[in-house]
Amino acid sequence: MPAPLHLPPRYAERPLTLADAGAVARLMAADELATTGEVHIEEADIVAEWQRPSFDVGAATVGVLGPSGDLVAYAECSGGARADAAVRPDHWGQGIGTALAGWVSARAAELGEPVIGMPVPQDSPGDRLLDSLGWFVRWESWVLALPEETAIPARELPAAYAVRAATTQDHEQVWTVIEDAFLEWSERERETYADWVATNVERPGAEPWNIRVVTDPEGAVVAAAVLVMTENGREGFVSRLATRRDQRNRGLAQALLADAFDAARAHGAARATLSTDSRTGALDLYRRVGMEVESTWVHRATRP
């Protein structure tokens, strides 16, 4: 286990459990609001990640308790090159973020990770802190939104191709298409099918229609999107969008994106969003279909 955190007097640390997901979401929401003016995180996001079979919540997390005993900060690092951390704004400036960054680095070293990083809003307090600690920028990412009442331009599918909601029988093909595409540019191990199901199919609030597919004339899944609806139903976020390599440059991704956003609006969403990063080269594609950048993030990393 990493060494104990160096915390201010009257603060304490402990491993977290799945029952802490709501408290973690609330402190992350306070952090997001203070740094970006918006809140995107939901408890379902935390639960979906922590309920993965590969995720050992107790070993992969640390929580910081304030003087009154409430959770005021946390970090997680479960393997792979990505970690997360947040400090409630009313507890900034006391060295807690520095302590958590050290814990993440030590935890990654224990796991044998050559590099570990986390996303932070560009030029935010978290970004500046990690910069001061020597964490470098690996890539940029952007959250994009489709203006209300704007529609993605329609793209006609090739003959005998179809776009529809996925069935349970499609799920393994969806996982394969998405993982194959994302592993072309991301540096991580292949996500297991069981973890994918836990994060996407079994995510709290997920509905069968949230997973969208394009099928070829033989009925095989050749493109897929995963749509996440916010708890209040007012926003549809495309968390994954992928096309099989041999099926690209046929307009499948644009047709699928339009279908996903139309499905979100049909179920009450006023906003349609997604994120992408500089490794994918997809930013211009999303801009061309009318999406606008809302915020810019950087992935800050260190070598343990």
Rank of each mutant, 00 (worst) to 15 (best):
S124M: 11
R300E: 06
E43F: 06
Q94Y: 00
W185G: 05
V115Y: 09
P114S: 10
T276F: 02
E43I: 03
L283T: 11
V298G: 01
A272K: 07
T302W: 02
Q169I: 02
P158Y: 06
V289Q: 08
W196V: 10
A301D: 08
W175Y: 12
G219Q: 06
L71F: 00
L274Y: 09
E184I: 07
D246G: 12
L33D: 06
P9N: 03
A99C: 02
V72Y: 00
V289F: 02
A108R: 10
D123S: 07
Q247M: 14
L256P: 13
P304N: 12
F55T: 07
W185A: 09
E13S: 15
V177P: 12
E38H: 04
H267K: 00
W175I: 02
P204K: 01
R88Y: 00
A282E: 03
A255V: 04
V64Q: 08
G97N: 09
H40V: 10
P208Y: 10
P147A: 01
V298C: 04
A25N: 10
D259L: 00
Q254I: 07
E218L: 12
E231A: 13
A3T: 12
I116W: 13
S186D: 05
A253F: 05
E179W: 01
G37M: 09
D170L: 12
L252F: 00
A34V: 03
R52Q: 15
S105M: 13
V87Q: 09
A253W: 02
G79S: 10
A220H: 14
F55W: 14
V163A: 15
R300N: 02
E294S: 12
I96H: 01
V62N: 07
R265I: 12
W103A: 03
R190I: 14
G251M: 09
S239M: 03
D20C: 10
